[in-house]
Computed example of a mutant assay.
Amino acid sequence: MKSLGSIRRSFAPWADPKSIPFIAVKNVTKKFGDFVAVDDLSLNIYPREFFALLGASGCGKSTLLRMLAGFEQPTSGEIILDGQSLAGIPPYRRPVNMMFQSYALFPHMTVENNIAFGLKQDGMPKADIAARVDQMLKLVKLDKFAKRKPHQLSGGQRQRVALARSLAKRPKVLLLDEPLGALDKKLREETQFELMDLQQELGLTFVVVTHDQEEAMTMADRIAVMAHGKVVQVATPPEIYEAPNSRFVADFIGDVNIFDGTVSSAGNGTVEIATESGFTVRVASNEPPAVGAKAGFAVRPEKIRVGRDQPACAPLNAAQGEIWDIGYLGDMTVFHVKLKDGKVVKASSLNAVRAVEDPLGYDQEVWISFDENAGVVLKD
């Protein structure tokens, strides 16, 4: 099998104007009475893409997934899959399969019978069913557990049975609704990479719904961040994290510090913002707001340095404060620094060595600082 890394570096069909979407959601709205769950949403998903719908509970992501599966019908708009409109096509006639968060395994059936269930319903010959089930068991590394029942399996093994059952019918698209939510943290992290490798090996299109940012960032080729039934931004994980297009996305994805202020100067690819915290931010910006406009500056904790000495860049991109809280997480240390105006800034430092001489402690006076390209300007 090819290196997953090399595949992912070169995979970007959305960047090619000639690419034809495999799934096209066109101006879809879904209402439940007066409540608008999905609001005039348009979205393109490409063949072999691992696509994530990310958002808080109630944002419409699961409703969109259910419309793709055929369990809900759009109030208006159209969904096209592989050139065919899905309007009026029942779930069992669609070339998609869905893996539910609960796994929905039949408790009285063995692993192999759970996997074979959909194939039997389709009337596949017994010999072909046996071959397909054997293939699926090997694919998810459960061939030694074929005769067990769900209650005799661990949570991770049940998750793999549900996945094998979903893949057995060889759908064109696999829909996953919070597929790893029932697993513990370590197993969830391991399974994320297994799903990625499996998706590449099978060459299928995966659409996953999750509220877990780390899960989406790890697995997806692209992420659609949703809020109130709309897509706020669609981009690759690095673009979503490093270049959020709005305050909502910056605040929703990962940890972030946002400094509000007024644009004091702009030009030559940079903008300066006089912040409400009493210092000036200078940041690289190709589309700076107008002088005098209100703006925000978003910078991630890992981009902020914390030290005792005044940095050379001060008073630009630097402010003085005191350490309010310290969190040791093993791989990194998190500092909460309270600035003179009372704003608390979060900074993180990688623990690259086992011990640090004269480490920073509580209530110490420190400076925070960051580079000009460390963050982004937020216009809204």
Results as ranks from 00 to 15, higher is better:
G5H: 15
F11T: 02
F11W: 01
S19D: 06
I20F: 04
V25P: 00
T29G: 00
F32H: 00
V38A: 01
F50R: 11
L54R: 01
G58A: 14
T63G: 03
L65Q: 02
R66C: 02
L68Y: 09
Q73G: 04
P74M: 05
E78V: 09
I79A: 03
I80W: 11
Q84N: 11
S85G: 13
R93W: 06
R93I: 09
R94D: 03
P95Q: 05
M99F: 02
L105E: 06
H108W: 14
I115T: 04
I115F: 13
M124E: 04
K126V: 12
D128R: 12
R132A: 04
V133H: 08
Q135M: 14
R148S: 13
K149V: 12
Q152N: 13
G156Y: 13
R160P: 00
A162C: 07
L163H: 07
R165N: 11
S166P: 05
K169I: 08
K172W: 11
L174C: 13
D177V: 02
P179A: 03
L180K: 03
D184H: 12
K185Q: 08
K185P: 05
R188N: 10
E189F: 06
T191N: 04
Q192E: 12
M196A: 12
L198E: 10
L202K: 13
G203Q: 13
T205P: 05
E215R: 06
D221H: 14
A224R: 00
V225C: 05
M226R: 04
G229K: 02
A235W: 07
T236R: 13
P237F: 10
E239G: 05
E239N: 11
Y241W: 14
E242V: 08
A243D: 14
A243Y: 15
R247V: 12
A266Y: 02
N268A: 12
N268W: 05
V271P: 01
I273V: 13
T275K: 08
V281A: 14
V283W: 04
A290C: 01
E302H: 09
E302L: 03
K303W: 01
R305D: 05
G307Q: 15
R308L: 08
R308W: 06
D309Q: 13
G321K: 04
W324Y: 03
V334G: 02
V337S: 02
K338E: 09
A347I: 03
R354L: 07
A355V: 09
V356A: 14
E357S: 15
P359V: 12
L360D: 04
G361P: 01
Y362E: 01
D363P: 00
W367M: 07
S369V: 09
F370C: 15
D371G: 15
E372P: 01
A374L: 07
V376T: 14
V376Q: 15
D380Q: 12
